[in-house]
Design a protein around this nucleic acid. Structure first.
Length: 424
RNA sequence: CGGGGCGUAGCACAGCGGUAGUGCGCUCGGUUCGGGACCGAGAGGCCGCAGGUUCGAUCCCUGUCGCCCCGACCA
């Protein structure tokens, strides 16, 4: 991608109302644009990051045998009346309005009311179980207060997975698989997420949250410094300094961002919609359910919140919109500039041919400082500079965003080294 | 929904009861060319919106809308 053609621009000044780190850096770097409180447009750079998160989520969800579907966001009132949630929590959470013919409609803030009747249509016998379906879709919630950039929006992306089982043992089995898949997602996104025992809110007595420790978090958890056992303060019977009930280590208190939540719904919704199956002995039994959520948009915000410095974002390789930021620097002498330009273009082409599309800063009118500042702000893992200086030194200047001294890599080795670096 | 802050050029901000300015960005010309350069010439504003006070309001008053923060709430 040529930087000169990239839609969206970086800004030298932070937005005046940039409160949270993630909002400031994502807006300043040209990743997102704010439309209103808690609602953002993804620009090309941001959309690529968002896509990488969703790809990781898909891979892990598919790996545990769940299948992707896509339910509507525009929903009728009836199934919500059946569970009582049209009025409680009702409009407190759900955007509700009227369509033609005075029909009551709402925007989806969760999809149990849709997926459960859907599943019912296809469940006859125990042979149809278990199965799990998920979707990645925007959810709408009438938040009392949207805040912190991508961390709490009114429209936000959610991967919601629903599993259907014939008995508790089967649900428990899948629940453990999902738990592991979730840990994989966060690890791959560069987040160190703790599995935290939590209240299931409206759903069930116990559930697990995935929490990432950071001072910018809005949840408070107690966790063991050694074995990572953790509980949300809302339900915790411990306090800082107590002994860990699992390993005897010391419990600590910390702020954290919740990046996911899994819980067992059991028969709450299959009761409401009377979802049953014929078991092997011919008797009719109730289907039981589990429910698992990850917010890809919140993951993006959390990653930025954790991985940055005073110059900008530092993307993990797995999420960076491009792997390499290739910078071409013009020289005093136009003949030298021509050589630099030609070399940079060739390197860009070679990288692309090797399956590594670079973000190529081809601007002719920008000076070195400006290009470097933009590269730091955008935060790709690797910066390669082709300039009069680098050519004189025998190649391209290699500098990793995460740190370390710059070095010169011969042009003939560059592509192979980049490949190795990005795969590491 | 309670409390607080802020709405002036694309962005960040200053300003003032007499119809608006700075920096960055943008356009044109020239010089520069490895950490956001410099010179010159330009373009760009319903001073959030509505009402009120006043001879006159971007400025004062009231209301309203929007954004941000704290709280309440919350996947």
């Amino acid at each position: 991608m040529r930087y000169s053609k990239l839609f969206g621009k970086t800004s030298k000044t932070a937005p005046h109302d940039a409160d949270s780190t993630n909002a400031r850096l994502l807006v300043q770097g040209g990743f997102v644009d704010q439309l209103m409180a808690g609602v953002y447009t993804y620009l090309p750079l941001g959309l690529r990051v968002f896509g990488k998160v969703k790809d990781i989520v898909r891979e892990e969800m598919n790996a545990i045998g769940s299948q992707e579907i896509l339910m509507p966001a525009l929903l009728p009132k009836e199934p919500w009346e059946q569970t009582g949630r049209w009025t409680d929590p009702g409009p407190e959470v759900m955007f509700q309005f009227k369509g033609r013919g005075d029909k009551d409609l709402g925007l989806g803030w969760t999809h149990e009311e849709i997926v459960t009747p859907l599943a019912k249509k296809f469940i006859r016998s125990y042979k149809d179980l278990p199965f799990a379906v998920y979707q990645i879709q925007d959810k709408f919630r009438n938040e009392p207060r949207a805040k912190s950039g991508l961390l709490r929006g009114r429209e936000f992306s959610m991967k919601d997975l629903y599993s259907f089982h014939k008995d508790q043992a089967d649900l428990d089995d899948f629940y453990e698989k999902a738990k592991q898949a979730y840990s994989n997602v966060y690890r791959r996104c560069g987040l160190n997420a703790l599995i935290v025992e939590a209240s299931g809110g409206a759903f069930s007595k116990y559930s697990h949250e995935y929490q990432v420790l950071t001072d910018h978090g809005e949840d408070i958890i107690f966790y063991c410094g050694s074995c990572k056992y953790a509980q949300n303060r809302e339900i915790s019977e411990y306090k800082a300094g107590d002994k860990c009930p699992k390993c005897g280590g010391e419990m600590k208190e910390g702020k954290a961002i919740e990046v996911g939540n899994i819980f067992q719904l059991k028969t709450r919704f299959t009761d409401a919609f009377d979802v049953t199956f014929a078991d092997a002995d011919g008797t009719k039994k109730k289907v039981i359910m589990g429910c698992y959520g990850i917010g890809p948009s919140r993951v993006v915000g959390t990653v930025v919140e954790l991985h940055n410095d005073d110059k900008g974002i530092i993307w993990p390789k797995s999420l960076a919109p491009y792997g390499v930021h290739l910078v071409m620097l013009t020289a005093k002498d136009e003949a030298v500039t021509a050589k630099v330009r030609e070399t940079a273009e060739r390197l860009a082409g070679e990288l692309e041919a090797a399956g590594i599309e670079p973000l190529y800063d081809d601007r002719e009118d920008a000076r070195a400082g400006e290009k470097f500042a933009d590269a730091d702000l955008i935060g790709l893992p690797l910066r390669l500079v082709v300039s009069e200086k680098s050519l004189a030194a025998g190649g391209t200047e290699w500098k990793e965003r995460a740190g370390g001294e710059p070095r010169v890599v011969p042009l003939k080795d560059a592509v192979a080294e980049v490949k190795k670096f990005l795969a590491a």
